[in-house]
């Protein structure tokens, strides 16, 4: 609530083009999924438009800041905006975590005949509750003729003996380390240590790429060796949707941090007292890290 004039930008073409790009992207995606041959073209044209608008938008915001237009009050608006954006992401993941909890704690036991509801044994005779769900209700009732089949193997906890050869463990190590390195990078820029900042942020980006590489390896392993796919009943569904959306967010976070690293290395951006572009990306990074810790326990260790 400080005084002084608040910078209200002039007219801008960014929002209308951003809306158009976003619309074209989803319109193309919907056409693509419905088997319309123009779908992919619209989708990629929209995606490119949207990316170009975002590029321009961020560069304008950066140059406004460097031109000294941003008062401390305006900067607070960006800080508040980023904080609430991350909260919205938390709630998005909450929907999928909630779905997993509901399935495991209530839906599957009920499907197996527990509780005082309808006796599902009539619908799915022989179905037994287990997690990971290897035998779907369809398989229990229809055997070989089942359409919804479970996986052949799951990603579960191998016991302490197999810990070091268990890929999710190394993924956790990589991501937790990266959260520490990005914190060191933040400390470095606050102490005006540019070299340390570039090294630590570079290491973070590298760790992000390593995580994504390992995650891709895990998916390939799941699809080719474990018979575990997105279509593998509710286990495959929740496994790939939770880890997949997390992976998509790690990808976004890595790109964000990479851009910040390039801004610092190539352009010398960020000052000890003015680095919110970087700090926002680091918040986002800590957020995807926390989500991973949740996933590690819920999807892997106790999954």
């Amino acid at each position: 609530m400080s005084g002084g004039t608040y910078y209200v930008p002039e007219q801008s073409k960014l929002p209308i083009f951003a809306s158009f790009g976003l619309f074209l992207t989803v319109f193309g995606a919907a056409n693509w999924m419905n088997g319309n041959s123009s779908g992919p073209w619209l989708f990629f044209a929209g995606g490119l438009t949207f990316a170009a608008v975002l590029w321009n938008w961020f560069s304008i915001v950066i140059s406004e800041n460097m031109a000294g237009l941003n008062s401390p009050q305006l900067k607070r608006s960006y800080v508040i905006g980023m904080g609430w954006f991350i909260f919205s992401e938390v709630m998005f993941f909450a929907a999928f975590f909630g779905a997993l909890f509901y399935i495991r704690a209530l839906a599957l036991p009920w499907l197996a005949g527990e509780g005082d509801g309808v006796d599902n044994a009539l619908l799915w005779p022989g179905f037994a509750n287990e997690w990971p769900l290897m035998t779907t209700p369809d398989m229990a009732a229809n055997g070989e003729n089942a359409i919804q089949k479970g996986p052949e193997a799951a990603m579960s906890w191998p016991g302490f003996g197999g810990l070091f050869s268990w890929l999710p463990f190394w993924n956790t190590v990589v991501l937790l380390t990266s959260s520490v390195t990005v914190h060191f990078a933040h400390t470095a820029i606050k102490n005006n240590n540019r070299k340390q900042f570039n090294i630590m942020l570079g290491v973070t980006v590298l760790l992000g790429f390593i995580f994504l590489f390992l995650q891709a390896e895990e998916y390939i392993h799941a699809y080719h060796e474990l018979g575990l796919t997105l279509q593998s009943g509710i286990y495959g569904t929740t496994f790939f949707m939770l880890t997949g959306f997390h992976g998509a967010h790690v990808t976004m976070g890595t790109i964000m941090l990479l851009v910040m690293w390039l801004r610092s290395v190539l352009k010398g951006h960020f000052k000890p007292d003015d680095n919110f572009g970087f700090e926002a990306a680091s918040w986002y990074w800590h957020f995807v890290d926390v989500v991973w810790v949740g996933l590690f326990f819920v999807v892997y260790v106790f999954g």
Binding site: Y102, I103, W124, T136, P137, D138, Q231, M241
Partner: peptide
């Protein structure tokens, strides 16, 4: 979740695969 069930073969809301329409 609907989109994935419709186009990508997941079973969030399909009891045959262990999901639940009540979800």
């Amino acid at each position: 979740m609907m989109l994935m069930d419709i186009h990508f073969g997941t079973s969030f809301f399909d009891a045959a695969g262990g999901g639940d329409p009540v979800l």
